[in-house]
Every structure is written in structure tokens, then in C-alpha cells.
Design a protein around this nucleic acid. Structure first.
Lengths: 230, 230
DNA sequence: TCCGTTATGTACCAGGTGGTGAGTTAGGTC
DNA sequence: GACCTAACTCACCACCTGGTACATAACGGA
């Protein structure tokens, strides 16, 4: 049998092979279609913002059609919310794997900072989505349901580290877990979120691989010196 | 004479008083029209982003018409660039008034951090524009001409403070002015830029006036402890 | 093999979007 | 007062945008 005859001489012309998918697999696959749309939409929204992203463009980059976006998600705004929720859910899942309990307080806080640093650096799309959502004053996130339990895991770990550090007399008082989280987040988010204007104005690419080690160490120093009793 | 007769019986109906401007002044005023458009556009772009802002809407909030936007600026993108340039120019002008040379190094760096803190807090629109421009990967800012000399003033001051601190033996080596600037900016920008998702997730408003003093002090502590030799 | 449900594709639309052609008027100049 | 030009108004447009009506095909159960 000749492989892939361009035009089967008779009967139905050509049923299979949706764009981008290998022929021979199931043509109808709700899960896959949904996931495909969500993945493309995530890229597009992260890339161009909510208003800048185009439903037509998202559909075109999908292996299905615009109609399916409305079939599965209902509309542009709901699609965007679904993208946000999925992104947050993914991030939360990864964050829970952190284990720094066996280290002493100073080493633990340094490790936590480092993990956050790496984490942010490897998820620029997520940071962009967060920034974009802030432009919209978090109106979608606030109305969403994924919020519950989003804060706790990371802060609990931090809280226990701080308590250990204070008990050991190496951390000062007057700083709570959320303060520390704010400092770490600010540093990590800023590197990605403001990368371009920072480079345009100051000529230094904060994400330059050659500078990565220094930047990572700087964050550790920053947090440890801030917390160290003085 | 009855004040404000709805329809003057004869002659030209009612020449004066463009919307929002007091009657009696010059009706045609290029400077004012341009400035008016720019001010409205700044608010709209900062509020909704580049793609989200609408020329029609900007025109409607102006005391002139859409046609004038094209007359003075040429198009949406050029208007946006003009907004960006004006915003950066304004900020640069203010930054040059900083005088911390008469203080000792530690006090000076704390003062500089505090000034930046206040500065960012009182210009949320500027921060939003910067964030928005980062979403667009600084493509407009890069092509613009305002960049020249934007970096120097702030960094020079910082540089001299660091040199004094190192000479006095109170600051450590291995940290340059841009590093410090990055840390300060990250903290200050994050508070405004990520305010909404931070509050949504963690329930704490970083810009709550009741917390302002603590947040300000925290930044000072952060920078000073980071720089202190140890 | 038939049939209902679910998934999918095609064609289309109303309203909004950035942008413009062409004429009009205020205000200064001589 | 005649005249010129910068500043301004009005009406209009082509295209794009999010969204949808409708026909149809694939799958699974009976």
C-alpha cells in the first residue's frame, strides 16, 4: 500500500489528520482539543496581554477552530480566566515539593530563596500573566476560585524557618513570613518583569546567564543579612 | 439680562467655551490642546495598557476631537511613545533634585532608599506605564530618543555614596551601584506593580497607609544590612 | 445497523477600531 | 479689510473583532 496517497480516488476525500496531529489517531478527542486551546491561549495571553491577544489568532495557532474555543470555554474572558487558573494551579503544585526542614534556619532560608529564584526564572510566562492580571487590578483572579489555599503552603514553610531562626537567636524579631516572602518575590519578579526597560535604561540584562550565579547569591545575601539579628 | 439664554436669538449661536475650559480665553491654543491630549492619553494608557486603550475613548475624554490626535501625534503608537517619553522626562527631572551628599554613607543610602520609596508611591501611573512597556518588551522605549542620560544621574549619586561607605569601612565590597539600584527598584516597583494579585493571594495590601511606615523602614533595613560589611 | 449525543467545521455578522478626506474658522499680518 | 495659515470640525471608511447559526461527522450504546 502506497503511503499517504494525495487524493484517494473515490469515496470520502480525506477524513483524517487534523493540522499538527499525526494521522491515524482519534480525530475526536475532547481532552486534547481543550488542552491544545489552553496551551496556545496561555502563550498568546502571556505574550500580548488580555486586550492584545486575539481569539482569531489563538484559534489559528490551534489544531482546531475558533468555534471550539467558544464550545469549550464560552468566550474570551472565560478562556483567559481558565488560563490564569491553570497557570496558578501548576505553580502551586510545584511549590509544595519544597523540603528545607532538615536544614538549619540560615541555610534553609537561603535554600528557599534560591528555589524561588530558580522557579521564577524558569516560568517567565507565569510572571507575565501575573503582571498582566495586575494591570487589570486582579479582577479576574479575585472572582476566581483557585485562590483558596494558594497562600498557605509557601508561607507555612517560611513561618517555621523563621521561628527556628528566632529560637536559635540568629534571626531578629519584627519580621514576619509575609514580609520575607514579599522581599524575595519582589527581587525575583522584578528581574523578569522589568527586564526590558531595565536593560534599555541601564544597559544590563538582569537575566544574562553570565550573571545568573551572582544574582542568585545576591538574593541569598540580601535575605540572610536582612534577617540576621543586629 | 438673563444669564445664559439657551438660544441667542440672532447671529452666530455660541462661539466660545470648549468643553472643560472657561469661556473668554483663547479658543484656539495648540499648546493646550496637545497637552490636554497627552494628559488624557497618559491616564488611559496607564489604566488599560496599549492594546486596551481606545483612541475613540481618549478623544472623548479630551476637550477636542479624535482628528486632533492624528493632527498632533500621527497615530496611536506615536501617541503612546509620546506619553512614555513625557513620563520618563518628568521622572528624570524630579530625580535630579536629590541631595544626600552631606550625609554619612549609611544615612545617605537610607535617605536615597526612602526618597525612591516615596517617589514610586506617588507615581503609580508611571510604574504602570513601565510595566506595560515591559509587556511589550520595551520595543517603543528602545526606539525612542529619551533614553540618553536617563540612567546617569541616579547612579552617580549611588556610586559616590558606595565609595564613601567602602572608604569608611562600613560597606562591603562586591556590590556595585546598579546592584543596589536593582534591589531598591525591585522592592518599590513590586509594591505597586503586584499590589493586586499579592492582596488577592495573601490578603495583605502592600500599599495600605497603615503599613506605610513599616514598609519604608523595612526597605531601609534591607539595603543597609545588605551593604554593611560582615 | 440505527440513533442520539458529543464534537467539529463553515460561513457569516453586527459593532467597534484605527484612520482619513475635505472642508471651515480663528487669529495674526500687512 | 484682505488674505494666509495653523488649528479645528464633521462625516465617513475599510477592516478587524468577538461572537454565533447551522450543518455535519464521529463515536458509543442498543
Amino acid at each position: 500500500m502506497t503511503p499517504q496517497p494525495p487524493e484517494p480516488a473515490s469515496g470520502r476525500p480525506a477524513p483524517p489528520a487534523r493540522r499538527g496531529f499525526p494521522a491515524g489517531e482519534r480525530v475526536r478527542d475532547a481532552e486534547r482539543t481543550r488542552a491544545d486551546i489552553l496551551a496556545v491561549a496561555t502563550r498568546e495571553f502571556a505574550d500580548r496581554g488580555y486586550a492584545g491577544a486575539r481569539i482569531n489568532e489563538i484559534a489559528a495557532k490551534t489544531s482546531t477552530t475558533k468555534r471550539m474555543i467558544y464550545y469549550y470555554f464560552g468566550g474570551k474572558e472565560q478562556l483567559y480566566v481558565a488560563v490564569l487558573e491553570a497557570a496558578y494551579a501548576r505553580i502551586r503544585a510545584r511549590e509544595q515539593q519544597v523540603d528545607v526542614e532538615h536544614l538549619d534556619a540560615v541555610a534553609a532560608i537561603r535554600e528557599l530563596a534560591t528555589l524561588t529564584f530558580d522557579h521564577h526564572e524558569s516560568h517567565p510566562d507565569f510572571i507575565r500573566l501575573v503582571i498582566i492580571e495586575n494591570i487589570h487590578r486582579a479582577e479576574h483572579l479575585t472572582r476566581s476560585t483557585v485562590l483558596s489555599g494558594l497562600a498557605d503552603p509557601a508561607l507555612d514553610v517560611l513561618d517555621r524557618i523563621l521561628a527556628r531562626g528566632r529560637a536559635a537567636g540568629v534571626f531578629r524579631d519584627g519580621v514576619d513570613a509575609l514580609d520575607v516572602h514579599q522581599v524575595i518575590s519582589a527581587y525575583c519578579v522584578f528581574r523578569t518583569a522589568n527586564r526590558h526597560t531595565f536593560e534599555a535604561v541601564f544597559g544590563r540584562d538582569m537575566l544574562d546567564p553570565a550573571r545568573r550565579r551572582d544574582q542568585r547569591e545576591m538574593l541569598g545575601d540580601l535575605v540572610v543579612s536582612f534577617l540576621s539579628a543586629g
